[in-house]
Amino acid sequence: MNFSKHWPIHLGLIAFIGLAMYPILWVVALAFSGSQDLTLANLPADPTQGDHLAAALPFPERWSLANFSGLMRDLPFLQWMGNSLIVSGLTTLAGIVIACPAAYAFSRFRFPGQRAGLFLFLVSQMYPVVVMLAPLYVIVSEWLRLGDSLWGLMLVYAATAAPFCVWMLKGYFDTIPIEIEESAIMDGVSRPRIFWEIVLPLARPAIAVTALFSFMTAWNEFILAAIFLENQDKYTAPVGLRFLVSDYTADWGYFAAGSILVSLPVAALFFALQKNLV
């Protein structure tokens, strides 16, 4: 495409990119500003148009790592990150371990309740989590006595993620030619070994996507975690971050720095799995 000929289109696209990136750049600037203020520049007593424009630019007056160091020093942020990592990691592991064999069974075997089961899995995805909040709280806190515990939260996340994971993986297992498995049967391979040595390696891209989805969902989840977790030591990162900005406090600098740190593990996971993502 010739730029000189299509410059209005390019200009429009650049404007849209700027619009999309502006909040992110603002958060980055806020994190590195070293202050807890939401504004990045102090306006003079009689500001000009240029002063207003300069203040709107997501560029701090001075660069500092103070918000990052303060976050680590003043708050148990690393512990929150650790809690998030434990809950998300275990949720992902549990989701994959449960969903892989379940999806394989739904894909390959015919059994009573197969269609109904798949349909119910789908139905369960139609309702927002808040609808299930009360029963989940009773089950986890009252019945299982796992309230205010990472295990309880992990259990809830894994249970709510499993249906989606099963659907995702079943769809992929359906695309693996049945002849490959029949060929293995002729070679004398048992069903469990076919699943383990033939099907799972072939389903790696789907497992990677499903794992990424599970991890991200658990990592970013806030509502359930905020309800289930009471003790500050048990907070996950999103819950901890949320309480940095409340009716009584407004540590925007810490909040921005925390937001950047929270996004790093997901980005790292994405890069680690990207060769398996189609």
Binding site: I180, S183, M186, G188, L202
Partner: peptide, 28 residues
Amino acid sequence: PKDRDVAMVFQSYALYPHMSVAENIAFG
């Protein structure tokens, strides 16, 4: 099937995509 002492060649070849040729041949 494994106890019938028969070998089958499929229309789609049904090779194991994640194994080398040697591994495919040796797998059984």
